[in-house]
């Protein structure tokens, strides 16, 4: 419930400062992410759809870190999950993050709010292909919070993401 309130507040704040967010642009390029669930600002039917350009315009971060899936340190960059959710006007407590192969993980919305979690579009500055776990990879800020570096968060680090479903 608290998270819901958080998201609501976030939305309220945005509604005052940026009324443009009420009308999410329609994607012009290939859609790489679809957000489903209870949304305040859907752009295609009941869903919010994003192309690469739309995602890369959102507030994001770049972090250089070690992960169990890469050799050496890798620099990941991409929009913050919470800015994606805000853009979609999403309201809920749980995120079902689904991959191309229909694999999914349940991620608490808290992870997006409390941590600088991103949907990485690039590794070492290059767009990621499907063979390289692209197009989107949920990356926790292991560089900022070493405490996150454990199996619980590894299992939530979904790659080849195509869809996020917001659940109450």
């Amino acid at each position: 419930m608290r998270i819901l309130a958080h998201l609501a507040v976030l939305l309220a704040a945005l509604s005052v400062s940026a009324p443009a967010a009420w009308s999410l642009d329609k994607p012009t390029g290939p859609v790489i992410l679809t957000v489903k669930g209870k949304l305040a600002t859907p752009n295609v039917g009941e869903t919010a759809q994003f192309d690469l350009a739309m995602l890369e315009k959102l507030a994001g971060r770049t972090g250089k870190m070690k992960t169990p899936w890469t050799e050496g340190e890798t620099e990941f960059s991409g929009p913050l999950v919470r800015s994606v959710l805000t853009a979609a006007g999403a309201q809920g407590n749980t995120l079902l993050v689904r991959a191309i192969n229909d694999y999914f993980a349940t991620v608490p919305a808290e992870d997006a709010l409390k941590h600088e979690t991103i949907l990485a579009t690039r590794a070492n500055g290059k767009l990621m292909s499907v063979r390289d776990k692209g197009p989107l990879f949920l990356i926790y800020p292991f560089d900022l919070e070493p405490g996150l570096y454990n199996e619980a968060y590894f299992s939530r680090s979904v790659w080849q993401i195509k869809e996020i479903e917001v659940k109450p």
Partner: peptide, 19 residues
């Protein structure tokens, strides 16, 4: 082709990731 890419990425991951 997408299925192939997924398999490719899985194989690649097995080669590179730390287990």
């Amino acid at each position: 082709s997408l299925r192939y890419d997924v398999v490719f990425s899985r194989m690649d991951m097995l080669k590179k990731a730390q287990f």
